[in-house]
Design a protein around this nucleic acid. Sequence first.
DNA 1: CACTCCCGCCAATCC
DNA 2: GGATTGGCGGGAGTG
Length: 766
Amino acid sequence: EHLSGDEYEKSQPSRKEKSLGLLCLKFLARYPDYPSTVENIYICLDEVAEELNVERRRIYSIVNVFESLHMVSRLAKNRYIWHGRHNLAKTLQTLKKVGEENKYTEKIQMIKKREYEHEFDLDGKGNEEVARSFVSIEHSEMCFVELPGIEFCAASVNSRKDKSLRVMSQKFVMLLLVSTPQIVSLEVAAKILIGEDQLEDLDKNKFKTKIRRLYDIANVLSSIELIKKVHITEERGRKPAFKWTGPEVPPNTHATKLETTSAPCISHISESTTSKEQCSKNLFPSRVKQNFTRHPSLIKLVKSIESDRRKIQSAPTSPVKTSTTGTDENVSAYKSEVSQLAAIPQYQLAESPKRPKDMKNNLSGSLWEDSLPWPEAAPKASTHTAATPPKPLVTQPLSALPPSHQSASAVIQPQPHSGASYAIYLHPSHAVTAYSPSFMLQALPCANEGDNCTAATDPGKAMAAASNCACQNCHEMVPEGYDNEEKQNKFETLDQSVASCSEQYKRECAPEDEDRTKTKQDIPVAFANPAHEAFFPSGYLIPLTQCTHHSNKAGLPNREKAGLCSLQHTATHSSPAAGAIPVMTSELKAVNIPAFHITSLNIMLSPTSIAAAPVLSNSHLNSSNASSVPNPSSSLLNFTLQHVGLIPAGVQVPASPVLQHIPIPSKPESINHSSENMTLQEEKVRNNILQLLTRSLMEPAGGTDKGQGPTVLKEPPEAQTMTENFFHTPGGPNTVPLLSANSGGTDTVSQGTSYIPQRKLEVSEN
DNA sequence: CACTCCCGCCAATCC
DNA sequence: GGATTGGCGGGAGTG
């Protein structure tokens, strides 16, 4: 009171200091990310408001958003319980699923389409049309999405009909999770959220209010680093948007059990169906729903896998577990594991907290990400990637590196001209190297600093990708083969701590483990199931996209800070085979990829081939393990390597498992960028060579596949890019979205859809 | 000026 | 009927 006006103003915290985001951080600082499950942490709103010196109203906003993610749940008046991030993975997965089922992808496209069509239509009818178009798409207005075990405590005391902020928050997250790339503009989000409630009057005020609320939500989500504000620049100017920066959510392969509140479920189609049943029905349409069909190529794959598994289990020549070193045992175990890899989602293992230095920067996700005990793995190598954006492909697989793989390190090579890179991640005793569709095994820095990713997108390729990804079609590619009830149930028991996951992995898979069969009895059901053994391949092919590196505030969990290469946003669409592709170490040994070729060897392997390779090559695993007898593959490789001048004539690549000790360049400077100079002609030659190599991998011992499946790489279309060749599949180019040429670190993305392929939107962050 | 989003009114609901 | 929740939109701060 005694202060003058100016002084008084200065004594007051600035507007920014009072922001919801900051307040949210303060709020978060009070509670652990992963609270003990033994001891409940209760939140008293009054206390918090007082301690943080804010009105209670503000706390409600925060708590409501957290509630939407099940980070808290309401116990009683003024009283919440803190769950932290324990439920997050499950929640996100559920939200993604509901989002998919609510056809948000289509809605986004519809909005964009209309927007585009009415860009110069000033009569304002565009919005109404959009609104009306929702009716034709989908009518499933959903209620608050809840998780089992949490729903009742929340619902019992809070029957307020409209939990708008909570529901809005969930819907917003859904939008982000289902869109490709995972960027949603404020405007689109607002329109969709309004569109659902009020089809008719999309008046300006309502829109403004929605935007306000979205900001509220976004501020909270940003503070927990699930999203990040970016800007989309298009013809008409800059638009605020939000990009998903949270953990990657694996594709849904089954219906997670979830409940909805007893709140009325609004349906635009039938006002009478307000029951919970109807609500659930909306959320989880019947399984026979036609948009869950298996992609034809997957049927083959599954059959092949199954038959192979049978062979392994019954063949007299199957390796018998011996009591010797344990190595054989492991190999045979891997063998059977590998035979199933293509069919079974890889369980996402948490990283060990202990990592070697060189991995720390490159591989470590945030604590938050590391700890996500995905209840279900991403069947990256096989399925449904279409409806799922080809995302931070690196991040997830790498964060899944099991603890025993500490010696591994990843080197990454984004290929500006050729799409995604792949890191070959090998078993602990082996190394990690990079693999890219331009077939360069190269090391690469993850060096892009901050937000200045400026490499240009190739609009043509982006367009190609966009137009090749008929997202609706993609939705229809969910393979039922992987939608295995039994597995699901098992996985639902897997909401475990990282520590236990890591520990289990060690016990289950670490080669140095004494006795597999014995330890198996100790492990929980999901791991004890033989099928789950298959979740630990000896290696992965990890599609890499681009790298970003952000310097972030210390102490905040951030995947990007950790230097993980994450796909920021991309117009790429992965093929069903994209993602972490399990690959057998012994397969690599079998072709004797020599260490010194790590930066120069150009190999062309279709991801589908690779995914299938373990299946098809089981019969020669033994020999590769023995590694004394050169096999046809190695001869062929040697020949081809010599042929292309990668090794001098007469030099034989040693047949020993040299890969085990491949020196990985630890510094980006050591990278060989020779691929950049590759001419088209060279590419062609390589294509041919690589086809040979592919076949040598695919048909090692009398090839069971008979020209079917991934080995069909007969005539790589000349004009096509390597990337396209790479993803050439028997299903035809239209059944599998092509991986587009990635921009290799740009923030310019094409948000083009099949509707508006021409649009190139620039995303900037500030 | 447009974009952000804080602030607090006040209605709905709870107890 | 007071307390709790939270929708909502005015308008201030920011770039």
